[in-house]
Amino acid sequence: MCVGLAAKVVGLKDGVALVDASGAKREVSAELIEDLLPGDYVMVHAGLVIAKIKMKETDEKK
């Protein structure tokens, strides 16, 4: 029901995150997530960061 997109946070300002999914970038709302930092991976749905993705060390390389 809800297409989610895993993306990397590459910028953050005033509750808005710039996320990058394999080179496609978009500004999305990050207001509902605490302690987000550039470099974090997040799950995005309809322009909102719904969750931070817990990365395993092995995931970081891809």
Partner: peptide, 13 residues
């Protein structure tokens, strides 16, 4: 498929 094309496709289903 180029990375950015698959990124856009991922965003838009």
């Amino acid at each position: 498929v180029e990375g950015a094309v698959s990124g856009v496709c991922g965003m838009l289903g």
